[in-house]
Amino acid sequence: MKKMFTPLLLTLLGIFFLLAVFKMPPMGNPDNPTNVVAAPRYITQGPQETGCSNLVSAIILNYRIYDTMGEMVVIFGALAAALAILGREHVKEGLSPLKVEPSPLVRIMMVIYIPFFIIFALYVIINGGFSVGGGFQGGAILASVIIIYALIFGFDNAVKRLPAKKRVFFEGMAILYFTVIGFMSVFMGKNFLDLNFLGISMFQKFLTLGLEISIGLASGVTIASLFYILKKVERG
């Protein structure tokens, strides 16, 4: 009986979804509701109103910035919950030796390549408003650089390079920046998190760049912290 239940549920769900999909208009049609209702406003007005030629960044950092702030709070909350369950990593000398020493070739290649990875991450973060990229992607590249370092040079070394005391500042940085800008725009008489509160488009671009950088650093360091907590070495 119990074995029959899952296939039955799956078939029912599949029939339900298929019936819904057959009612949908054909994909990619220019007359679809998604292409008619809100999109023309973003495409025609977006570059003038936000100063970003990348429309996805324009939506994330200007039109729907409140959602982005909520998202940073969600990531921060995930980190806080992880800390409440397992706690910060505690590494003592000689407790976590590498089980397999990587070959010298890998080490030397990584010593050469890691600066380029970091420069690429910063490039992706800073160019987010104008080309393919953005804070989240750059932050993820940054986190993957930290993870590669920890995997090749040992967990002890990675924790020593970026200890928890230094990481705390970056983890909370994005939320702090969002809150400061939000209340600044409120005190200037505009809506909460209205980036154009001075009416100067140059200043708005400057604030957008700051948002990209803070989102990138915060999400990257938060993901790296989650990795550290997961890989935490047990005592004894």
């Binding site: 292409n35 429309l55 998202e71 969600v74 980190l79 999400s219």
Partner: peptide, 22 residues
């Protein structure tokens, strides 16, 4: 192309990392 679904998905991807890790 309409940029709105892409923006929504980009946010959801990064939230997905946090929830998966947790």
């Amino acid at each position: 192309i309409n940029p709105l679904p892409q923006a929504v998905v980009l946010m959801a991807l990064v939230v997905g990392v946090g929830t998966t890790a947790l």
